[in-house]
Each structure stands twice: as C-alpha cells, then as structure tokens.
Simulated scan of single mutants.
Amino acid sequence: MARVRPGEAANPAPPTVQRIRVRFAKRGRLRFLSHRDVARSVERAVRRSGVPVSHSHGFSPHPRISWIGAAPTGTASEAEYFEIGLTREMEPDVVRTALDAVLPDGLDILDAVVATPPALADRVDASLWRIALPGVSGADLRAAVEGLMAKDSLVVDRIMPSGKRQIDVRAAVAWAEAGEDSPGGVTPEETGGAAVCAILTAVVRQTTPAVRPDDVLGALDVVAGLKPPVPAKSTRLAQGLLDDSGRLTDPLGSDRVTTRA
C-alpha cells in the first residue's frame, strides 16, 4: 500500500469543477418516502444516469450531493432541492434530463441551474404550504385561521425522540389564508370523498425545530377546536427567501416569486 504523504488525501478523487442546483418534486404515493429513502433513490439515479458526480476523499468516498429542508414524511412537495458536484462541466438541462429518466415516477426533476453564490442554504428561510382539509368547511377554517393569526404566540407540544418539545407555531407562520369549499384544482385524492374540502395556504418560516403542517393543524385545534375528520393532504409549493410582501424568491436564482393565494 502506497504511503500517504503529509498534506495529501488518501485515495484522492477528481476535483469538483461544477455544482448544479436541482429542484425536484415528491408526488403521489412517494410522498411517504423518508428523506433517507429519497436520498438513496437520487444516489442510485446518479450512478445509473452516468452523470460524472464528484466524490469525497478517503477510504469510503461518497457522492458530493448536499440537501436542504427535506419535506416531512407523508407530505408531497413541488419544491425540494439538492446540489450535486460534478467532475466535468455539463449543461444543467442535460443533467436534469438524465436524472429524471432513471428516477421512479413520483420523484420528478423539475429544473436545474449552475450553482452560484450565495449558498443554497442562504437562499431559503420559509416555505409555502397548501393543506387540503377534507370534511372541513371554508367558514370553519377561516374562523380558525383568524383566531390563530390574532395570537401573538401559540405553543403546541411535539413528542420527539429526545422527549416533549414545545413549539411556537404562531411565531413561525408569516401569513395564512383559507380557501373556499371545494375550490377548483382540488383532486379526488385530496377530498377523500368528502362533500367539502377547505384549503389552507400558509407561508411558514424556518425555525429550529421546523414547524410542520401537522403543527399548524395542531395550533388550529388549540385555538378553535378544528379537527379534520379525515387526514389532511399537505403539499409544499415553494421554498425561498421571504420578502416584505410575503412572497418567496426562487432559490434557483431567477426573478420568479410566489404569489399569495
């Protein structure tokens, strides 16, 4: 075995010459995948696609893929992100097409760009959520949302592996709005066969620990006794930096922003 010289890495790998930022969706039944399952699926897709991913140094090299803000297990998303390091430069659309072709249906690559400063983590501080509430009327949801937004603070308990944790949901919710009963665009899966289906749209700031859709629904229960008769369907529509108007900038660096519901 060759001796490793001082200052040199064991088993040196080709350097990273380009980083690509990728936006992907988690849809349908694959919303029940954990973040670890999603990460493994992407790593397998990278190997199968032939994309020249760079690896860490050492005796157990790993592909240079970094993640941010994974959606909770059980929630769908149209705005998940990762960055991938490459050993040679490629057109982002070629990377997008190659990865999308080998990922399972439900993990869909939507966009890709060359990564530029600032870091991806510095481009995200909030998420836009759409929560379908089958069996809940628009009037009941509006009353609950008004009660929540009128509070200065509303703390809910979450059971975590380390024990019970108190989370201030109101401090994390930048804005929230209730949609009408059975609005256009509600899918049969979301309604669950219910005659009515109210829609909650909310921008939630990143906190530690992160406030999840279930925490927001728990806060609505505390403030107004709102309990959906069937499980809610949550979808993350966007992530980005929250501006003064309540919109989110696109982390991929374009001028697109979300609009309020």
Rank of each mutant, 00 (worst) to 15 (best):
T259W: 02
V196T: 14
K151D: 12
D140R: 02
R48H: 10
G246W: 03
V203N: 02
R47A: 02
F82V: 10
H57F: 13
E43L: 10
I199S: 02
T187N: 03
G69T: 09
V204M: 04
D255S: 15
T75M: 14
P228T: 13
A98V: 06
Q239E: 15
S60H: 03
A143G: 09
I167K: 11
D108Q: 07
S254E: 11
D108G: 04
V155A: 08
V95M: 03
R236C: 01
S234W: 00
S66D: 15
D105A: 08
G185D: 07
V203C: 05
D140H: 10
W129R: 00
A115K: 04
R23Y: 07
D221H: 14
F59I: 10
D168M: 10
E8V: 00
I199V: 15
I65H: 13
A25V: 02
L217W: 00
G135E: 10
D93I: 04
P229G: 12
W175G: 01
E146D: 14
L107F: 05
A70P: 07
H35W: 06
S41W: 02
R165T: 13
P61C: 03
V216D: 11
G135N: 12
M1R: 04
T116Q: 14
Q166H: 14
G253T: 10
P92E: 12
A150C: 08
L30K: 00
D108H: 00
L220G: 01
V204C: 05
V203A: 11
A98D: 06
P92G: 09
G193K: 06
V216W: 05
W129M: 01
S153C: 04
S127D: 14
A70F: 08
P161Q: 12
V173N: 05
A98Q: 12
P63N: 11
A172Q: 09
A76P: 05
R247N: 09
R260P: 05
M90L: 15
Q206I: 06
L242F: 05
V124G: 05
E189Y: 12
A25Q: 04
L33N: 05
P61E: 11
G179N: 08
A13I: 01
A71R: 00
S245E: 15
G253H: 06
R212Q: 13
V42C: 09
R165H: 08
H62V: 11
H57P: 02
S162Y: 08
Q206W: 06
V211G: 03
R123G: 10
G28M: 04
D152W: 01
D221E: 14
H62Q: 15
S254V: 12
T235V: 15
P52G: 13
R31P: 02
P92R: 14
P104L: 09
D111G: 08
K227T: 13
D181P: 13
P15S: 09
G193P: 05
P161T: 05
Q206V: 07
L30W: 01
